[in-house]
Design a protein around this nucleic acid. Structure first.
Length: 660
DNA sequence: GTAGGGTTAG
């Protein structure tokens, strides 16, 4: 090829090489090579049909990069002659499955303007584009269906009609009934047609019709089973899904991926990880999708060891070129307490998406690294990334966890003024939170009053914590009652209310609230802590005695308690809900899930290794103070994730500066 | 020389 580039263009010589070029293009594997061929075509003034080959190559490489797509577009736009229908189809097909399907429709528009008549291939591609985006469907879906009839596509065309069935059945604003009536009128159907309509029913959580068609389907293929598995997981019927999964003739990679992602979506990370391990035992190799699906399971659990293992797997298999994979790893590390590792992955990425920046900024925020988050935002802008509303949630959270009131105001005002993003209720929530923590209760109220939304439970919740910070019990009580009205089944508010009365010593009120809960059948969500050791997650609730090593754990607790006494720790009994005497309260505190998990961590890990604990609720005030002491007395770094943020305990203090 | 359906995303 290089020889062809340099040699003078003798038409005879070129003709000899034509065949070579055409066949090489098919096996050519990099964009760089494609460019070389392009140069070759230009240099030798080779015929137009080779451009078709070139386009085809650029757009069918196994992982279609945006670079290849951009390049193909350039080639297409610079064609000297009018493109053939094949070329139009090639470029449209490519955009239909890209992340900008609207471009496919634009190209179709130009094609029509230039008088080119679409064929059956064209329709499958533009229908696919409409199926990918509900806005596109709303704008063009039905019109394109009508045009297919105008241009003479018969309903015996199984490809076009399957695409149509899929479009109506899958798009958010479509309807399965329209898809069904097309399906019923089709002369020929393939497995793809059946799967499309069954998936449509399953997506709409109409498992009955899905199952009925599945039972009628003549030749089921592997995908048919996957569709049903997904359908059952979607409505929470994991037993049924599991039975299908176990019983299907062939379990393909998507089958495993479907089950794993379903468990993760249902917040059942333990089962997701178990399946992930099982698939490797049976010799199924995880791909990028598996990894993106399973990583949030590690994130949910704070299961750092499993997460690290997956990171290693990603590097070995070169999945780290995939932006989504990296984003999931960054999120896993930052939510598992390793913000520095998250930063390292972020820095190592060759290309980043908006999600990458947002994930990193939110990660820094939950670790209280407000300055670094702000710095990253500057870097983000200098690299030309455009922030969205989620970026600002991250930035405001960063200010909240670091107590940066002034900076928060600037972001809040600029988001509309400079970036044209209307603040949503979550942004107001962040601001109320920030103002409240800084004791600006009046300003917080003022902001709520001029907000264009009705205050929801999040806003009221932030206001409530502001009342606690400012010790305004009367106002706090009012807000709480409103919250209990707003969400009468949320146990958290009753507990808060009860706590508030308890700390004021108003025990009759405490009993009244607790009876209210009882009468309404509401149970307090039990606080639960988990700690991962040797790839196993151990869970503890208050006063837990179910662990195999309970005896040792309680002995360790005794030892801790003695050492803490000597160090000057005094239990903060104001946090106890019940009307116990002081000794009883201290007893209750000493077996909180946080302390059990930390005791177990001290027992089972060697000196110098940080102890990582995850709590499902907010960390208790007394445990927070006790763990500070433990970090000093035992010279141990303890990283605790609660439902809001991270606490890094070291040498007797915590990274949150007592803000949480 | 192009086609249809299933699995991911803060």
């Amino acid at each position: 090829m290089a020889a062809l580039l340099n040699s003078p263009s003798h038409s005879a010589e070129v003709a000899i090489h034509l065949q070579t070029i055409a066949s090489s293009l098919q096996s050519c594997s990099s964009l760089k090579q494609a460019k070389l061929f392009h140069a070759c075509i230009l240099r030798n003034n080779l015929p137009q049909h080779l451009y078709a080959k070139l386009l085809l190559f650029c757009t069918t490489s196994p992982t279609l990069s945006t670079d290849a797509l951009d390049y193909a577009t350039l080639v297409f736009q610079q064609l000297q002659q009018e493109p053939t229908i094949f070329m139009w189809n090639t470029i449209i097909r490519c955009y239909a499955s890209s992340n900008t399907p609207s471009q496919a429709i634009s190209f179709y528009g130009s094609m029509r303007n230039r008088g080119m008549k679409p064929n059956n291939y064209t329709f499958t591609f533009i229908i696919k584009a409409c199926a990918a985006d509900s806005c596109l469907f709303d704008l063009h879906g039905r019109a394109i269906h009508a045009q297919s009839i105008v241009f003479g596509i018969p309903n015996s065309d199984v490809h076009v009609y399957t695409s149509l069935v899929n479009m109506y059945a899958s798009v958010a604003g479509g309807n399965v009934e329209a898809a069904r009536s097309l399906f019923d009128r089709m002369q020929y159907r393939t497995a793809a047609t059946w799967n499309a309509i069954i998936a449509g029913y399953a997506r709409k959580e109409n498992i009955k019709d899905a199952q009925e068609l599945f039972d009628q389907m003549p030749d089921k293929d592997e995908q048919s089973w996957n569709v049903m598995v997904c359908g059952y997981t979607k409505i929470g019927k994991f037993d049924e899904a599991g039975r299908l999964f176990e019983g299907m003739p062939v379990r393909t990679l998507p089958s495993w991926n479907a089950m794993i992602s379903a468990y993760v979506r249902a917040s059942r990370p333990v089962e997701a990880l178990a399946l992930f391990r099982e698939m490797q035992i049976v010799g199924m190799r995880p791909d990028e999708i598996t990894v993106v699906s399973v990583l949030p399971a590690c994130t949910q659990l704070g299961a750092l060891e499993s997460g690290e293992w997956i990171h290693l797997y990603v590097e070995r298999n070169r999945f780290d070129r995939n932006i989504s994979v990296c984003n999931a790893i960054i999120d896993m590390y930052s939510k598992s307490g390793c913000i520095d590792k998250a930063t390292a992955v972020f820095k190592g990425m060759r290309k980043r998406s908006l999600v990458s920046w947002n994930t990193m900024i939110s990660g820094l925020a939950i670790h209280g690294r407000g300055e670094e988050a702000s710095q990253l935002f500057i870097e983000m802008e200098s690299e030309g990334a455009v922030p969205d509303d989620i970026t600002f949630v991250g930035l405001l959270n960063a200010c909240a966890h670091a107590g940066l009131v002034e900076r928060a105001w600037i972001y809040f005002e600029n988001m509309h003024k400079v970036y044209g993003i209307q603040p949503k209720i979550e942004h107001y929530g962040c601001m109320v939170d920030i103002l409240g923590r800084a004791h600006y209760l009046k300003e917080a109220l003022k902001l709520i009053n001029c907000m264009p939304f009705e205050p929801n439970s999040v806003i009221l919740g932030s206001l409530l914590s502001a009342c606690r910070t400012c010790n305004d019990f009367q106002f706090g009580e009012k807000i709480l009652e409103k919250l209990v009205d707003l969400e009468p089944l949320n146990p958290g508010y009753y507990v808060l209310l009860s706590n508030m009365y308890a700390s004021a010593g108003r025990w009759e009120e405490v009993i009244r609230v607790r009876n209210l809960m009882k009468n309404r059948g509401i149970e307090k969500k039990p606080g639960c802590c988990s700690i991962e050791l040797d790839n196993t997650v151990h869970e503890f609730v208050v006063g837990d005695k179910t662990h195999q090593q309970t005896k040792q754990i309680y002995a360790k607790l005794d030892e801790i308690s003695q050492k803490l006494d000597l160090a000057g720790y005094v239990p903060d009994t104001s946090v106890v809900l019940f009307d116990l005497d002081e000794e009883g309260k201290a007893q209750n505190l000493s077996v909180h899930s946080e302390k059990l998990a930390v005791a177990f961590g001290l027992l089972k890990t060697r000196l110098g290794k940080p102890i990582r604990v995850v709590k499902n609720l907010r960390v208790c005030r007394d445990c927070h103070s006790a763990i500070k002491f433990i970090s000093q007395v035992y010279s141990r770094e303890i990283v605790l994730r609660d439902c809001n943020r991270f606490h890094h305990f070291k040498d007797g203090s915590c990274s949150c500066n007592n803000f949480w």
